[in-house]
């Protein structure tokens, strides 16, 4: 696989991994960019015998995001842009689809805001990236049972907050 192919296959997944952690799109794009920079530098060092490509990619993504958030406070001192900026959507020619997408994303963002960083990460890796609990345990350094417990608690929190909206 070439790096171009990796970029095409993983862009949306990495973007969502970043977006689950971040408060807004701009920050998610910055984090996505940082993750792909690291992947580009380390691309030649990937060894398929040690781990699957997915696990390797998300181990790197996790390492970059830890550094990213460590420096977030420092960066915010020098930031002159608003945290909540209005952005154009890509489906401007289909307003109904735009509204539906915006509504879904708004609900998702509201759900994520009640969770910790760890819970958000594990939910993303399980529900969006469709990784197994063993793979998530490898990426995060947690035990498999711990991953299961965190998943269960996080889903319960969301159900308690939004469950009645779906009745």
């Amino acid at each position: 696989m070439t790096f171009d192919e990796l970029y095409e296959n993983f862009f949306l997944r990495i973007y969502n991994y970043a977006r689950y952690h971040c408060q807004n799109e701009q920050e998610a794009e910055d984090l996505t960019s940082s993750i792909f920079e690291k992947l580009y530098k380390k691309f030649d060092s990937y060894n398929s015998g040690k781990a699957s490509l997915e696990v390797w990619v998300f181990v790197i993504a996790r390492s970059v995001s830890v550094d990213f958030f460590r420096w977030r406070k420092f960066r915010s001192i020098f930031s002159f842009t608003s945290e909540q900026e209005e952005t154009l959507t890509s489906s401007q020619d289909n307003p109904a689809a735009k509204l539906e997408q915006d509504d879904k994303e708004k609900r998702l963002q509201e759900s994520l805001q009640i969770l910790s960083q760890q819970e958000r990460e594990i939910l993303n890796l399980h529900y969006y990236q469709h990784l197994k609990q063993t793979e998530i345990a490898t990426i995060t350094g947690l035990t498999q049972s711990n991953v299961g417990v965190i998943l269960h608690r996080a889903v319960k929190k969301i159900k308690m907050k939004f469950g009645k909206d779906y009745e």
Partner: peptide, 29 residues
């Protein structure tokens, strides 16, 4: 509707990148 399935669908839906983010990030990279 089963709440767990709905929450699962919500979490699986994800976010769409905006403003040609994919192209912009690749160019910068």
């Amino acid at each position: 509707m089963n709440n767990k399935n709905t929450v699962s669908a919500l979490l699986s839906s994800g976010f769409e990148p905006k403003n040609n983010a994919k192209m912009r990030i690749k160019t910068a990279l």
